[in-house]
Nucleic acid binder design. Structure first.
Lengths: 211, 211
DNA sequence: TTGGAAATGAGTACTACTACGCAGAAAAAG
DNA sequence: CTTTTTCTGCGTAGTAGTACTCATTTCCAA
């Protein structure tokens, strides 16, 4: 019995590309392709593949959430992230949300086959290049994943507003808190993230997807 | 005689996808695919397609530069940008660098065919969704394309450093200019770009690809 | 229910940025 | 070779952010 797979990606080119690659794999069968999160969930009600290839950047929902939801609905289905993003933090996020694998879109046929087989057998598969990134980050040490440094809900809220170019005073007004409090939060965030100034905070806000 | 096309994209999936789509077009023939700018230029020395499909985000060189270089070397070749980026400023940039068309990666077969035929006949083709974006920006008015506001070389340099989290003092030290000068530049940039504060400057630097 | 984290707020001192106006030198454009 | 733009620099303000310490309250979890 071949491995059945499904794909969720909003690029028709990618869908076609994967189809043509899968065609060359005798023991893999693609049962459907969805172009967004909503149609994926609908399609899954009808048929469930053994392995789901999931683009992280979809038009309607964030890939991480979609992954978590899918794994909750169908715990036995293996999910492999398929993206061109090679940032180590993305990898961590999606893997923590239930994905068993991480493939880059420039993957070749043997890698694809190996990835599918591995996760189908219950293993994990992470693209080699990504693995290197993770190791590199681990070695270079402390600045490994600011993303692991947790911000409180309020702090995230304030970081978002900083990213939206609001001043501390404007943030204070918007959240009905005093200027002092807003500045305090700002200071605490900067300390947590080791940010020297506003520029660093804005970049961090962007990196975390808060803006 | 069919239209000959070539593709430059670092994602094997996209290459395969386009191949399989092109196969369904009787009067279009794909003569080669390159995975980065360097190998594209090498391949072009051997054979020149009528139309070149070019991903803007390549591993080695910025797509805009590559496009300009290709058009300089082979003025008769038509270049179509192929990307998933739908930002209006990207479109403007690449079109100004000699591209005749702009396709999104979620394009379908009829659109692809029309685009290829149009640019082959010497016309221009811009994806419908992108056109809408451009119109929308034009309507919403003044904030249309900060990117059109030209910064001087020095100003770009300074905006880059701001994006790199340097303070005005550090910028002054780095460029061997006085703090006053650095602050003046900063102020002038902010005025040009209508930026309220550092946060806005950093975001603009990122948007312009200076960081 | 109690202990700890989170959120709020204040005080103080200093540094950085904002917002100009003005002007000479250098470089680019015509 | 001139005109314009750019780059450089200074002055003066006022405003915003940096860099803490400390104290209350609120709220979530053990």
């Amino acid at each position: 019995m071949p491995i059945s797979i499904a794909l969720c990606d909003d690029h028709l080119l990618v869908i076609n590309g994967l189809k043509s690659m899968v065609k060359q794999l005798p023991d893999v069968e693609m049962i459907f392709a969805a172009i967004d999160g909503a149609s994926l969930l609908t399609a899954l009600e009808q048929r469930q593949p053994d392995v789901l290839l999931l683009d992280i950047q979809l038009p309607d929902v964030p890939g991480t959430e979609l992954c978590r939801r899918v794994k909750k609905l169908y715990p036995d289905m293996q999910v492999v992230a398929l993206t061109s993003h090679d940032d180590a933090n993305y990898v961590r996020q999606i893997l923590r949300n239930g994905a068993s694998g991480y493939l880059l879109k420039n993957t070749d046929l043997p890698t694809l086959q190996k990835a599918l087989q591995t996760v189908y057998d219950g293993g994990r598969f992470v693209d080699e290049q990504i693995q290197k990134n993770l190791v590199h980050e681990a070695i270079t040490g402390q600045r490994m994943s600011h993303n692991d440094i947790p911000l409180t809900k309020r702090e995230k809220e304030i970081l978002t507003l900083i990213g939206q170019e609001l001043s501390s005073q404007e943030i204070a007004d918007k959240l009905f808190i005093s200027l002092r409090t807003a500045e305090n939060h700002r200071f605490n965030i900067a300390k947590k993230l080791n940010a020297r100034n506003t520029a660093a905070l804005v970049k961090e806000a962007i990196r975390r997807g808060l803006v």
